[in-house]
Nucleic acid binder design. Structure first.
Lengths: 117, 117
DNA sequence: GTATTACATCGACAAACGTGAGTGTTATTG
DNA sequence: CAATAACACTCACGTTTGTCGATGTAATAC
């Protein structure tokens, strides 16, 4: 919201004097920021974002062989993206014979989602 | 939610036959994915995430000179991060004499936030 | 006018990234 | 058994990233 608080009428500080006193501080500490940024970074690729979208909407376990034809990338690149999502703690997978099934880890997106709301 | 739908009992496809028919599709189209991934990517760095946190919570325009002492990075690096946030359409700035004031663009995070919820 | 401050931009660097071709591993089919 | 499918992993590549020091630009203070 463009509240347009008073823009503190600053003055150039005297030689060597400290600049503006900071009057605002982050509510989110470094630890939280690291966790949420890791999740956001993993979502920061359109293919990975669509992957998560598919997995979330399906709300079950999806075979990689169903994901491959949805995207215009090679199988190895898709595997790489799934690996990134797993490394970020967003998804996990389960082997079943020849097939691998991926699913979204419940609550993995919650902290970021809550912060954004 | 770990609904654990039936894991379709796949069978190895015959030589040359198409693999699994995809039964799931993304709800989010390519355009949306590109927009949201751009925002997520910009939030995918802990310093930028904290920057956005400060600017959002303050709900007004914040002078760069107040932001610099909050983080353990050089002024030029901070400027670089603010530039990235601006390029992603998350923040904008306003010059006032020697000082620059940054603020979050209303609704810039809305699409991503809604998708995550 | 001169000195100095606030901020953005440039140049450089190592590290990480997205991508595909190729390879390896394991399981299934026949 | 042999052939082959599904998937992850390795290697190589060009691109992007985060970082800092140095420089540029514009405005203020004296």
């Amino acid at each position: 919201m463009p509240v347009d608080l008073e823009l503190a009428p600053k003055q150039k500080r005297a030689n060597g004097a400290p600049c503006c006193e900071p009057v605002v501080y982050p509510d989110v500490d470094r630890e939280q920021a690291l966790r949420m940024a890791e999740v956001a970074k993993a979502l920061g690729d359109p293919i990975r974002l669509q992957l998560v979208d598919v997995l979330r909407k399906h709300a079950g376990k999806v075979c990689v062989c169903e994901l491959v034809p949805l995207f215009d990338i090679s199988q190895s690149t898709l595997s790489h993206h799934l690996g990134k999502l797993r490394a970020a703690g967003i998804v996990d997978s389960e082997r079943q014979g020849l097939w691998a099934y991926y699913y979204v880890i419940p609550d993995a997106l919650e902290e970021l989602s809550a912060w954004l709301s």
